[in-house]
Simulated scan of single mutants.
Amino acid sequence: MVVSHFLKWIHTAKVSERAAAASALARAYVDSDLPFEDRCAAEAALTLLLDDASSKVRLAIADALSMSHHAPPQIVSALASDQPEVAALVLARSPLLTDGDLIDRVAGGQKATQRVIADRPRVSMSVAAAIAEIGEPEACVTLLANSGADIASISFRRMAERHGHLPMVREALIADVRLPADCRHLLLVKVGETLKGSPLVLALMGAARAERVTRDACIKASVTLIEGTHAEEHTALVEHLRLRGDLTASFVIRTIAHGKVDFFGSALVALSQQSEQRVRALLAGGHDIALQALFLSAGLAAATHAIILRALKVWREVANGKRLAGVQEVSWLMLKELGGQSAEGDLAGLVKSIHLDTLRENARGHALAIAAA
């Protein structure tokens, strides 16, 4: 169809006819090797069709142009700002939209638009950062489900901070293998805060007990979290805990009691400001006097040194294949350093609680194994 005749015809054509003709013209523009004058005329006609009263016409153009590298950029830009049904096709597919274009539309705040952009085949780190920073929860969930999205650690953290209290976002974050360890800990804290403020929990326990129970549960969960954390993430997790005020002496003692020697070393590096090489060497084979000096420089009270040294020696023997032992035996030996079951004081209470928790866990595991046999 000659473009000049087409422009006269559209004024009397039905909507379905205009949509079909618009689609054909758009596909001819991107798929055919038109002469220069015909291309200019086709581009002018497509631009005119952007003002068509029917969204079906604009939708037909969007469908034809949405995946082309050769589509007229001004038409793509206009379609991307059209009503959601039309814009979605271009926002989801068009390779002509820059990161700046996409970020501007994320900032527009429409849920449907944000979700479409978050689900593009490839989402750059800057666009993902915009969604993490200002996106609605639904857009963040879509982004996390997108394997083609390049998400920076700080963007994971912002999603956890902004929406971690929402179950759908929290579950999507936890399910993502890319999630940094410090973000996983932040989500643990979010769960604890939610439980602590639950009307049911407050009614059953009271505010003071709910605070204590959730705090203890978060500490235990944090120790368990270390098991699934790669060694290269330990430094970031330690810094996160330190900034939150959670890297306490009691937490450090729990980590060594549970055999998290590598993490214990990362904590000592952060707290003592000594080199990682020196700390690792001392933990692997340092004498007690040198280790006690390290503990002091890390701010660990002298009263804690004996039980830490006892645990460290056992875990060294286990690592060297000279001994078989677990948390139950190690925590018992730590408690013996303090005087056994009759020992009193906060430190003894902490070690007792570690030992009793381990006894319960081991007994539960044994019972389940018997039931499964």
Rank of each mutant, 00 (worst) to 15 (best):
E239Q: 10
F251L: 03
A284C: 03
L241K: 01
H230Y: 15
S272H: 03
L283D: 09
G265P: 08
T255M: 00
L237Q: 03
A284G: 03
G245K: 01
E233S: 14
G285A: 08
V252R: 01
A284F: 04
L237H: 03
G285E: 07
T255I: 08
H234L: 12
H234D: 14
F263P: 01
K260A: 04
V269Y: 15
S275Q: 15
T248P: 12
R254Q: 11
R254W: 11
S266Y: 08
R244V: 06
A284T: 01
V252H: 00
D246Q: 07
K260S: 02
V252I: 15
E233C: 10
A267N: 06
S266F: 08
H234A: 13
L271R: 09
A257R: 06
Q277H: 14
A249K: 07
L271K: 08
L247N: 02
L283I: 07
A267Y: 06
L243T: 11
A236I: 05
V252C: 00
V269R: 11
A284Y: 05
V279S: 08
K260I: 00
G259K: 05
E239W: 08
G285R: 07
Q277G: 13
T235Q: 10
G228D: 07
V269T: 05
S250T: 15
A249R: 10
A249C: 13
F251Y: 06
R278T: 15
I256S: 00
F264H: 08
T229D: 01
D246T: 04
H230V: 08
E232P: 02
V279Q: 05
T255A: 01
H258F: 12
L237A: 03
V279N: 07
R242Q: 12
L282I: 13
A281R: 13
V238C: 03
T248I: 03
L237E: 03
G285W: 05
T248W: 15
H230T: 06
S272K: 02
G259Y: 04
V252N: 00
E239Y: 08
G245H: 03
L243I: 07
Q277C: 12
H240E: 15
A236L: 12
S272G: 03
R278C: 10
F263H: 02
I253H: 08
F251I: 01
R280A: 10
A236K: 10
T255V: 13
I256Y: 00
R280W: 04
H234W: 14
D246W: 07
Q273V: 11
T235K: 11
R280Q: 11
V279W: 06
E276L: 06
K260M: 06
V238N: 01
L268R: 02
G285D: 09
A231M: 12
V261E: 05
